[in-house]
Design a protein around this nucleic acid. Structure first.
Lengths: 166, 166
DNA sequence: TAAAACTTTCAGTAATTACTGAAAGAAAAA
DNA sequence: TTTTTCTTTCAGTAATTACTGAAAGTTTTA
């Protein structure tokens, strides 16, 4: 398989995988293109390679920068902006996790907590409040555990404890 | 807040949350309705409560059964099928995790592995192969770690070790 | 200050995704 | 076996999501 074919397939794969996880397909494809490019790319490079419009390229690049997955990179003697992706995949995983937590876990917990103000007189409220509480505890526990595991994977001592569990 | 309001809001919340995670919004809403219902519901109950069609109700209920989040439940003297949701939220989390792994991790690993057959002569392939390998290792590690996490949360001894890390 | 080079925005529209409703299918009752 | 009751399927369509492209905005150069 030639490099360009493999790169093309990787871009498709990353795009499809991303959209299954609620990440915009084109954004994932731009990310994949930059991940597989040794050199920084301009907006025009990206437009050409993925056959997307200038608007789409611009919006998705800026969103990738919000996620901290892509940086601007200036080229001396060139007024264009160039872009590079963070290549350390462990960093990539951490930053995606961090961003999704920030956007989803916190609002979810807030909304769930509000729902506990349900009228306690209604007998149906009993199991409802219990269930909301169960979800809160579960989400909070998974959140903390994922932090612990992230730390553990980075840390030789904790990492060796974690490996005991596998 | 009245129970029916709280239930309605929970259904919206679960639907929106689900669709952010690549889970069909209506499916998540049907799930939320069943989670917050003490009694088993018929297709007609669900159609009425969520204002969706018979086809939609049927398709989403069957999909929820594939995910093992909802069961059929017969009522004596009634020919209709009734449905109940698994109410143990820890079971719910485990089953969603299991299903997503099965559908996504395995195919992803397979595709990534295929991409390693890239022409090694091209110098660009070097960093490409490294990156694919990095993703494989990362995904495999996260997969194993999530298994460990599940076991740890279920197990008092391992659980206490995990709590040390937090 | 004006022109050139590049980036950003957003109304209109295309692409995708999932729902509707009616017809066909299946199972139970008569 | 015919009718009744309920479930499933799927072509057509509605709803959602995200892209296009041109105009406006911004920065740099001269």
């Amino acid at each position: 398989m030639k490099f360009t074919e493999a790169q093309f397939e990787f871009i498709q794969l990353w795009g499809n995988f991303g959209s299954q996880w609620g990440i915009n397909k084109t954004m994932a494809q731009v990310h994949a293109l930059l991940l597989t490019s040794d050199e920084a790319l301009s907006t025009d490079d990206i437009m050409e390679n993925l056959a997307i419009s200038r608007g789409g390229a611009n919006v998705n690049l800026r969103e990738l920068m919000v996620w901290n997955l892509v940086y601007k990179s200036a080229k001396p003697g060139d007024r264009k902006e160039f872009f590079v992706a963070e290549k350390d995949m462990w960093e990539v995983a951490k930053r995606i996790t961090r961003e999704r937590k920030r956007r989803e876990i916190e609002p979810l917990m807030h909304h769930l907590n509000r729902l506990k103000n349900v009228d306690e007189a209604d007998p149906k409220s009993l199991t409802f409040v219990k269930m909301v509480g169960d979800i809160e505890r579960l989400v909070s526990r998974m959140d903390k555990t994922s932090d612990a595991l992230m730390k553990a994977e980075e840390n030789a001592f904790f990492g060796s404890i974690i490996r005991l569990l596998k």
